[in-house]
């Protein structure tokens, strides 16, 4: 039998009637997976934040991480592009294989590795520069000097996030002069400009109004044709609308995962059942 690609809490193993089914499904995912996380542990001195995470992220899909506050969703997301490096107190171990490369191995070219992933945080954090420079920033880091190429990319990516018409006359204004919803789309455009293949989004709409939220959601649906999106959300209905695959976490462990219709409508574990009831 091949290795299982998700973990259950030991106490839950009684509920493993449909496990055979899921193993088959997990193996199917594995064939097209772009990220595979193996035995990922993140610990602090006070205890474990992520406990032995095994997860396959399918390519060109939206994977939604669900779970109560503090269960480690943000930490998991940050492990993927090694932003956990910024915190010495976090001890990370295990393997994260992206496109066949283990990003945990020392000597990696961190910058290039991080540029393969775009990051959207809970609240937009535009760089202290103009709208134009925000999108151009990553390109310049990549060593692109051609003004024409940069201008082209700025325009394309602003168009992609539906911001071009709103800002084309004031590209030189500070990025902070935009509304929060616009800033969030700018941050997305800025991330897309460096041509990532993966988008990491940590509650990207939690600070946004319903209309901006809708825009981001629709963008994600479009973008998934070319990108793999890993998104954290607390909004169950958003998960239902967007997710191709839902991962439910609880106290640093993956409890259940699967297709949203299946997992959100017929949860198998009592923990998820309870979470869904409380969440609605």
């Amino acid at each position: 039998m091949k290795q299982m690609t998700f973990t259950y809490q030991p106490t839950l193993s009684a509920e493993s009637v449909t496990m055979q089914n899921e193993i088959a499904m997990a193996e199917e995912i594995k064939d097209t997976s772009i990220i595979s996380i193996k035995n990922l542990n993140v610990k602090t001195r006070d205890g474990a934040i992520l406990k032995n995470i095994n997860l396959e992220i399918p390519k060109n899909k939206i994977v939604v991480l669900l779970g109560p506050s503090g269960c480690g969703k943000t930490t998991l997301l940050k492990s993927l592009n090694r932003l956990t490096d910024l915190h010495k107190e976090l001890k990370v171990s295990g393997q994260i294989i992206i496109d066949g490369q283990d990003i945990m191995k020392a000597g990696q070219n961190l910058s290039a590795m991080r540029q393969r992933m775009g990051l959207l945080s809970q609240r937009p954090f535009p760089l202290p520069a103009s709208i134009y420079k925000n999108v151009a920033y990553g390109l310049k880091l990549k060593g692109i000097r051609s003004k024409k190429l940069i201008a082209h990319s700025v325009e394309t990516n602003l168009k992609r996030v539906g911001l071009w018409n709103e800002v084309k006359d004031r590209l030189k204004s500070p990025a902070t002069s935009l509304s929060i919803g616009q800033q969030q789309r700018l941050c997305l455009a800025r991330g897309l400009a460096v041509k990532p293949t993966i988008i990491l989004a940590d509650e990207p709409t939690s600070a946004l109004d319903p209309i901006s939220t809708k825009i981001i959601e629709n963008l994600f649906k479009e973008l998934k044709q070319h990108y793999t999106i890993i998104m954290v959300t607390h909004v169950l209905r958003q998960a239902l609308r967007l997710a191709d695959h839902v991962v439910f976490m609880y106290y640093g462990e993956i409890i259940e995962q699967g297709h949203p219709d299946e997992i959100l409508k017929n949860p198998k574990t009592t923990i998820l059942k309870k979470y869904l009831i409380d969440g609605n």
Partner: peptide, 25 residues
């Protein structure tokens, strides 16, 4: 710290983050 994270996630090194993001901010 999220601003630093944004800078790193775009591929900046530490020096680039210091000079182009933190110093300007």
């Amino acid at each position: 710290v999220e601003l630093q994270e944004a800078s790193y996630s775009l591929g900046s090194t530490r020096t680039e983050t210091a000079l182009k993001v933190l110093f300007k901010q």
